[in-house]
Design a protein around this nucleic acid. Structure first.
Lengths: 233, 233
DNA sequence: GTTGACAAACCGACCGGTCGGTCGGTATCT
DNA sequence: AGATACCGACCGACCGGTCGGTTTGTCAAC
């Protein structure tokens, strides 16, 4: 894009996205008014419409930003492990943890659902295809490691695993309860058994291994090696 | 309640509920306006506000009606079978099938989420506790039948099963795809394996056994024998 | 190093439209 | 007569969005 922009400009833009993400997550898209957003961001109507052409496009930006941000970070965390089984567990836990910061799975699906009726962003709104594909590949690797029953179809299993996670997240939202680690471990145990992974669910790292920025890239490269397209919203 | 009402009255009321259920399901609560509802129901503002004190209360009525209707019918269908495992499969399939008619799991959770911010209906909005309890009891019976691994906690397993179902339903909504029987069978197979049910997923009845009204009550009584309170919205 | 010009960034009053909700009246029953 | 059921004009509030104007930052010309 040839659009120039100042530091101050992108900063307000990001602030708008962050604030909107928070509000959309808590109250939903159509229940959140533009006035809510701009006043929370300390801005005015004119300021907003300088940055975004419409409320719907802002929501789209929220979707994209969420994807990029958390996705990279989660892949990096997961990539620190060797076995695919461990990577899956790490990934799931990272997603669950990121919920405080970013809109989680359930909020994303809800937002997509509400946006579906907005004509401006009619494009394909499937934020989970990425995770399904990735999980499917991890299952393939788990089979190669001898940790998973090869008779089980990886893609169907991956779809089930993601479905179950979204549902879990969703019901937690309904109960306005956090997605606590115990429940995540339960989820992992059931999913592992469902997809024929014999290995026990690996224990949580008590000492939260924070990957440095340098090894982050390596790790991300390792887990996402086989080219999953990253650019479908 | 001491409110008298004519046949015509309750008919309009039911029509409003049915129409609202449809619209809330398709577009969401706050994205559906009262004008949408009343015009779809062939009514006017005044007519509506004679039947309901507010939009939120109508939504609550949708929730309750949905619960009552489909719940009874589904329990009846499931109750036709002997083994708990078969009942579970029948129940899941009945829920999936009822999706065309009534708001399904995903729509219900979405509606509850949107209603959470409405002060009038602040009460507890947990439409899934019923299903979790019921599924837990069925798991207990499956254990007694020797079909399920007794080492697995019934309630945790039930929670997982419901979570996974809601997630599946939700992702189908997102893809604007129906909840087709093949996917439901996949779901059943994974869940059975997850919770340690050794039995194969029973085949679908090709010949849709429609229970008569008389045996419906018997069947419902059988499956819901151990007194699950039915009245928490 | 001051100046002036121009774009980026933001302001806030304002717009037409729609929202949920109200109310005085009317038709239709028993 | 009186309750039930419905009508539809109307209300203030708020919605997403527009627009002419002001501030802020950058940079070339002098």
């Amino acid at each position: 894009m040839g659009t120039r922009s100042t530091d101050r400009g992108v900063e307000t833009r990001n602030r708008l996205i962050a604030v909107a993400a928070e509000l959309f997550m808590r109250r939903g898209y159509s229940a959140t008014s533009l006035n809510d957003i701009i006043s929370a961001a300390g801005l005015t109507k004119g300021g907003f419409y300088f940055q975004f052409p419409s409320k719907a496009v802002l929501a789209l930006a929220v979707l994209q930003t969420t994807r990029g941000h958390s996705q990279d970070q989660i892949l990096a965390t997961a990539g620190l492990h060797e076995r695919a089984v461990d990577q899956i567990a790490a990934m799931v836990r990272a997603v669950a943890e990121s919920k405080g910061t970013m809109p989680a799975m359930a909020s994303l699906s809800r937002l997509c659902l509400e946006l579906a009726s907005e004509p401006e962003v009619a494009e394909e709104l499937r934020p989970f295809e990425f995770w399904i594909t990735l999980t499917g590949q991890l299952f393939d690797r788990a089979k190669a490691d001898g940790d998973m029953d090869p008779a089980i179809a990886s893609v169907a299993a991956a779809r089930f695993a993601v479905n179950a996670f979204v549902g879990t997240d969703h019901l937690c939202d309904l109960a306005s309860a956090p997605l606590d680690p115990a429940m995540v471990d339960d989820y992992l145990a059931f999913v592992f058994r469902a997809v024929g992974i014999s290995a026990d669910v690996p224990p949580r790292a008590t000492n939260q291994s924070r990957p440095s920025d340098t090894e982050t890239d390596k790790a991300a490269a390792k887990i996402g090696a086989d080219a999953i397209e990253k650019e479908t919203v």
